[in-house]
């Protein structure tokens, strides 16, 4: 068998996510989806080597302070200091190591450092709201940041986004790529938020971090834990033949 044939045979594909995992692209409650969802059904793309590989990024891309959003300026940002940590796992509970995690968020008042954000709440000169890190060999990541504020938007009258942090994950393959949002426990704004509620009900709690007393540091920061699960792989039918790997 040539190396190429081995390659195409040896690597199992990733399991599809069952219905009820992700929000439908057509979610009328979130008005901006109206002209931004495909109407035709997607076709099935069998996973070839293009799909089971993916960018393995990060080495050289992470600065020393990139996972601490409170030390990126001469002064400290205003707001509740928090530690957000967790593991990136695949659907079989295996750690996803050495994988890029990117976050971005509003400041304590709910304002993003972005020229399109015109919500009249001050920018914080000591807060950019952008972080990145690599998971360690156990799939763990950690950020120190400020609890983001809620903010209003124009989806409907008196619409407010619950506090959230945007997360971008690469995993180890094109197939595992995920962009999502992490929320905070017991947010009273959940009920009226069409973005949070676009997720099928049974899956919503997976987007809510857990208050973590163990990682809350005396006189320093509140801890929140947020594990992220990316798609796992099919069991390989070839493993028995491959003892000589």
């Amino acid at each position: 068998m040539s190396a190429r044939e081995q390659r195409t045979r040896a690597s199992p594909p990733y399991r599809p996510d069952p219905d009820g995992t992700h929000p439908p692209l057509d979610s009328p409650g979130y008005r901006s989806t109206a002209l931004r969802h495909p109407v035709r059904r997607p076709l099935t793309l069998p996973q070839s080597v293009t799909e089971i590989t993916g960018p393995v990024l990060g080495e050289g891309r992470i600065g020393e302070r990139d996972n601490d959003l409170t030390v990126q300026h001469p002064g400290e940002p205003i707001g509740q200091r928090i530690v957000v940590h967790g593991r990136v796992l695949d659907g079989d509970g295996r750690a996803v190591p050495n994988s890029l995690v990117e976050i971005w968020q509003a400041n304590a008042g709910g304002r993003y450092r972005h020229d399109a954000d015109v919500w009249p709440c001050p920018l914080d000169p000591n807060f950019d709201g952008v972080g990145r890190t690599l998971t360690d060999e156990h799939g763990r990541y950690e950020f120190t940041t400020i609890k983001p504020g809620a903010y209003p938007w124009k989806n409907h009258h008196n619409a407010w986004r619950p506090a959230h942090i945007h997360f971008s994950l690469f995993g180890r393959s094109f197939t595992q790529r995920l962009v999502t949002q992490m929320y905070f426990p017991d947010d009273p704004l959940f009920d009226q938020d069409p973005i949070f509620n676009s997720v099928p009900e049974a899956a919503r709690s997976r987007l809510v971090s857990r208050f973590d007393m163990n990682r809350t540091t005396d006189h320093w920061a509140l801890g929140f834990e947020f594990d992220i699960v990316l798609r796992g792989r099919e069991a390989t039918p070839f493993e028995d033949d491959d003892h000589d790997h």
Binding site: H22, P23, L89, D90, G91, H166, T180, A203, R206
Partner: peptide, 9 residues
């Protein structure tokens, strides 16, 4: 198996 984390915009 663990269920996947849902996507958001």
């Amino acid at each position: 198996t663990l269920p996947s984390t849902p996507s958001q915009t």
